[in-house]
């Protein structure tokens, strides 16, 4: 009977949370198994990249700005939250543009935006960097920990350990990217892809379309989130992104180094590059003992396979990033009792 199981991966952390909240796993026929993927940007940020941001926050007259999800992620020695309690100037922003206002208000300080995110977020930061140049800001810097989703998706599609039958693809990444980057996943790796939205009905419809493809031996990319996603995506956003960033090889927690899966500032914008501005010595990255976030992010193991889950590691006192982020798989399982 086991061969008949259909294994689908929801790539996006926002989907993971929506699925858990709506209790969709419990409603699905038993032969359909949903596994969570690497689509939580906070969770896949490498320990070294978190450590670098924390070390920069120790420097005098530096203000760190970042999204709220980053605050409690444990680095090797400490977290942003702990650093802030000890006096570091670390501020949560809603938009990267808010970091520009902070830069203008604090001309005597250097303001760093610690950026994480996929293709949904990276164009907003590219536009912010262009705006910083327009305003002539010389005290604004970006720590670019942005990830490009598709090389990671390819790694998962080709994984012999994972053996996933299809992908529930992220709606808002696809608003920007459109369907073209999925073509290789569907045609070369023979994995059906359906882009869905975030309402319960969107997700269930997306699962139905994936199962239809699998049963009829088709492997194509379909859009179940037509109200927001088009085949072409947001061409303007990608043009802005490409004008500011180049791809680089990048380390993903759990998945390791993936070719061309990260973003770095182009040479003409290097004055905004925090990594060039701040040379810091990093501690030897040590991952929390017993934490299996790496395997959870690959979909090989689930939170319940972790000895720390719910005992030592809880949202109040998280050990690994998948419990910290509001859309981490472990946080979703804990909160909704999956």
């Amino acid at each position: 009977m086991k061969e008949d199981k259909i294994k689908l991966m929801e790539v996006c952390g926002t989907h993971t949370m929506a699925i858990a909240r709506a209790g969709i796993k419990k409603l699905l026929p038993s032969e359909i198994e949903l596994i969570s993927g690497p689509g939580c940007p906070v969770c896949v940020t490498s320990q070294a990249d978190i450590d670098r941001a924390i070390e920069i926050s120790r420097i005098d007259n530096v203000i760190i700005t970042t999204f709220g999800d980053m605050m409690r992620v444990p680095g090797t020695k400490t977290s942003f939250e702990d650093m802030k309690r000890d006096g570091a100037d670390i501020r949560v922003v809603y938009s990267p543009l808010d970091a520009l206002t902070i830069s203008e208000d604090n001309p005597q300080k250097r303001v760093v935006f610690m950026g994480v995110g996929f293709e949904t977020t990276s164009p907003t930061v590219a536009a912010t960097i262009i705006e910083a140049r327009k305003r002539g800001l010389r005290n604004f810097f970006v720590l670019s920990n942005f990830k490009v989703l598709f090389p990671a998706l390819e790694a998962l599609a080709g994984s012999s350990k994972l053996k996933v039958d299809g992908f529930i693809c992220p709606g808002h990444v696809s608003v920007v990217t459109g369907t073209i980057p999925y073509a290789k996943i569907a045609s070369h790796y023979k994995k059906p892809c359906v882009i869905t939205g975030f309402d319960e009905i969107d997700i269930v419809k997306g699962i139905k379309r994936l199962v239809e493809q699998i049963k009829s031996h088709r492997c194509t990319t379909e859009i179940e989130y037509r109200r927001a996603v088009t085949e072409d995506g947001n061409i303007e956003a990608r043009r802005v992104l490409d004008s500011v960033f180049d791809v680089k090889d990048s380390h993903w927690r759990g998945l390791g180094m993936i070719k061309e899966s990260g973003l770095k500032l182009k040479n003409k914008y290097r004055q905004f590059d925090a990594e060039k501005e701040f040379k810091v010595k990093l501690p030897k990255a040590i991952l929390p003992k017993g934490c299996i976030c790496g395997e959870v992010l690959q979909g090989i193991k689930g939170p319940r396979d972790c000895k720390l889950f719910g005992k030592v590691c809880t949202p109040r006192k998280p050990v690994g990033p998948c419990m910290v982020s509001s859309e981490g798989t472990c946080a979703a399982y804990y909160r909704y009792g999956e």
Partner: peptide, 8 residues
């Protein structure tokens, strides 16, 4: 998203 219109 993050203070930007990303799509219609």
């Amino acid at each position: 998203h993050a203070g930007f219109a990303i799509g219609k």
